[in-house]
């Protein structure tokens, strides 16, 4: 039995075919794949995207030989070279026990999907975050933003939360998949929140991910993927974040247009009940302010006066920096990126 890296296009095709036989698909955002072969024949495969293990399958004939341990160990060894020691896996309910046997710890589980981690602990990570910011145990309001980039809509949402709570936490999504990098988004939010009393800005850590990262390989339809992503995220937020930081209410922007976010808002509403407030969007004339509108303006017109009614000074200042200029150039070139 040998472990091999998947490099050539034809090898990738063979992996796709193998996954297909196991009723799984190959996600497009994979960084690295490996296969386990016996006499040239693929008997198992595993892949990774960032720190998320995905597209894991073992030939049913060989199940019981613990080939999963061989595959996962080989993949972890490759990740160490990139200094990744903390990994996640989303998998179907039936495979939870196998990952647990390897030392993975379950975070949350739905009817169909489970999220597990190895090399880190969500409780410890959140506790460390709480300690390092010397946060109190008092009840708090909470807002989670990607802020790609920060708009006056975000400011409005955060202010609404801060009006109702002595202390408000603003989590900025740590995952670096947006056109504005995390460091820039975090800096814009921190700067824009400076004048709002009782607000602490924190990184969301690896546990709240966007639907772009959410693995799709074992889910069949777009709508199912959206539902499962929302559910995992809501359960993680409710089970760990609300508890660790004593969050009493979460504030979310209304999403009349995007089906993605409206599923998310509905799920949040269902599980948090009256602990969740959907705040109507701040409007400019008839149009709700959104980060996508700002990106669109930047893409078509660059940095002009036209964006100032949409964004706080912190965002303008960032867009004026050399880094900001690079992003505007990239926006103009990458029409499709979000």
């Amino acid at each position: 039995m040998t472990i091999e890296d998947v490099i050539l296009e034809q090898e990738k095709e063979a992996v796709k075919c193998f996954l297909h036989q196991h009723n799984l698909s190959y996600d497009e955002d994979i960084d690295e794949s490996i296969v386990l072969r016996e006499d040239g024949k693929i008997i198992g495969t595993a892949s990774v995207s960032g720190n998320i293990l995905k597209c894991v399958a073992v030939d049913s004939e060989y199940q019981g030989e613990n080939l999963l341990a061989t595959l996962i160990s080989a993949l972890l060894q490759r990740l160490r070279q990139r200094d990744v020691h903390h990994v996640f896996v989303y998998t179907i309910d039936d495979h939870v026990a196998r990952f647990k046997a390897l030392g993975f710890k379950p975070i949350v589980q739905t009817m169909t999907t489970a999220l597990l981690e190895l090399g880190g602990s969500i409780q410890e990570a959140l506790l460390n975050l709480k300690r390092s910011h010397a946060l109190s145990d008092a009840p708090k309001g909470c807002v989670v933003v990607n802020a790609n980039p920060m708009t006056l809509g975000h400011v409005h949402l955060i202010k609404t939360a801060a009006e109702h709570h002595a202390e408000t936490l603003v989590f900025v999504v740590s995952e670096d998949r947006s056109i504005f990098p995390f460091a820039a988004r975090f800096a814009m939010v921190t700067e824009a929140c400076r004048a709002i009393p009782g607000v602490t800005v924190l990184p969301s850590l690896d546990y709240l991910v966007s639907s772009a990262t959410f693995p799709k390989y074992f889910l069949k339809s777009e709508s199912k993927i959206r539902e499962e992503h929302a559910l995992i995220d809501v359960l993680t937020f409710k089970t760990y974040y609300m508890k660790a930081f004593n969050i009493s209410h979460r504030y979310m922007g209304e999403e009349p247009f995007s089906p993605m976010t409206s599923v998310y808002n509905e799920t949040m509403k269902k599980y948090l009940n009256n602990q969740c407030h959907i705040v109507p969007r701040l409007k400019l004339g008839e149009h709700p302010i959104s980060a996508s509108t700002v990106r669109k303006l930047l893409r078509h017109h660059g940095l002009t006066e036209a964006i100032s009614p949409y964004v706080p000074d912190a965002t303008v200042a960032y867009l004026n920096s050399p880094e900001g200029e690079t992003i505007i150039r990239r926006l103009k070139h990458h029409e499709q990126r979000h």
């Binding site: 613990n66 341990a69 061989t70 996962i72 160990s73 972890l76 060894q77 160490r80 200094d83 020691h85 390897l102 030392g103 090399g119």
Partner: peptide
């Protein structure tokens, strides 16, 4: 961080 070893039996 440094990690060594495997998860094999």
């Amino acid at each position: 961080k440094v990690t060594v070893g495997t998860l094999e039996s």
